[in-house]
Design a protein around this nucleic acid. Structure first.
Lengths: 189, 189
DNA sequence: CCTCTCATGTAAGACGTTACATGATTCA
DNA sequence: TGAATCATGTAACGTCTTACATGAGAGG
């Protein structure tokens, strides 16, 4: 549902066609968000059918590529968008991560292998942090809200990296040198 | 897919039936994770069909309630689980939040309303932080991994709260006292 | 008797991802 | 000519959520 509103929001900045919406999101939020055509085109279609957006089929002669639909938001679309924007968020934050899912159970696995996997995570998030810092530097002239979102991305990244490194140290210096299953929650219920 | 492995992992701690798996997750990870019956029972069924878990239909006379299937993990299940645990995480972290989705577009909305919504978030996350801190205090005797996960939850919470409060301050002291659409990304592409 | 908790399950639908199909233009 | 990019779309699949159906036993 909220991709619909993301599209309506982006159309406040400027008129766009589907392909542009994707590249725009990749360029400005790609460091923390992704979207695919499989979501964009069906949503554009239904937004159009609901009268929230409209388009002019245009095939600019100078432009390369096939015909494209340049969408713009309608008055009804703006109204809907405002209602959504003013409503209290309808759900909770979702955070899921295949690494953390494994991490919970590392006590049942091989300690050396766990260290390897953690090291790979550390490398990945260090690279990502670089990307995010470079992004912030490159685009200084953004509005407050988008800038704050980027900063949140950086702070999250730093927090998670610190945690990963601490977890790694604790694991390395733990007395548990065997590979015995650790009955982490036994006796609790 | 990874709920299957979560179930296999939990069955390392002790034998459980479907209902227990849910209450167990709620008790130990409910502050950061949720699962529903619509996922548990079909997955138990398919894990059973794949020979990764097995069960004894038991209806303990003293126990209240209907018959239940006490599942336990099989040797094949352990093998599969080890393979998964040793494999590199097959995807990236997913973080999505209906609040942040709105936040990006607050420049197009009403500033006072934005402050209200941020205040509600702050209250929510302060409450959640309390819950998480209480949880950590109450359960000291956990294994390293589950404890570290709980600590990550707390640190995430604190980081996000700090960010929310900073965002609120910036917004309050911003010179933008009108409600004009802020052309945050205009001129970029 | 009624409600709550325990317990198992199915069905419908929303949502998301991946892959595929098509075709034009640009550039090497 | 062949690959890359631009551009629109559909189909299949997998996952997740919500709602529903069923029923036993405990306690007020």
């Amino acid at each position: 549902m909220s991709i619909r509103f993301a599209i309506l929001g982006l159309l406040h900045y400027k008129n766009m066609h589907g392909y542009r919406i994707k590249t725009h999101i990749e360029r400005h939020f790609g460091h923390m968000w992704s979207i695919n055509f499989g979501q964009i085109y069906p949503n554009l279609k239904s937004l159009y059918e609901d009268g929230l957006i409209d388009y002019n089929e245009e095939n600019v002669p100078g432009e390369k590529g096939p015909s494209r639909k340049l969408y713009h938001i309608t008055d009804n679309g703006r109204k809907m968008f405002q209602e959504w924007l003013n409503s209290f968020p309808e759900g909770n934050m979702i955070l899921r991560d295949p690494f953390l899912m494994r991490f919970i159970f590392f006590g049942f696995g091989d300690r050396e292998r766990a260290l390897e996997i953690i090291d790979e995570q550390i490398a990945d998030y260090e690279e990502q942090l670089d990307r995010r810092l470079r992004y912030i530097e490159k685009r200084q002239h953004q509005g407050m809200y988008v800038r704050l979102i980027s900063e949140l991305g950086v702070e999250f990244n730093q927090m998670f990296l610190d945690w990963l490194k601490r977890a790694r140290e604790e694991l390395e210096s733990s007395t548990d040198h065997g590979h015995d299953p650790e009955p982490v929650l036994s006796g609790i219920d």
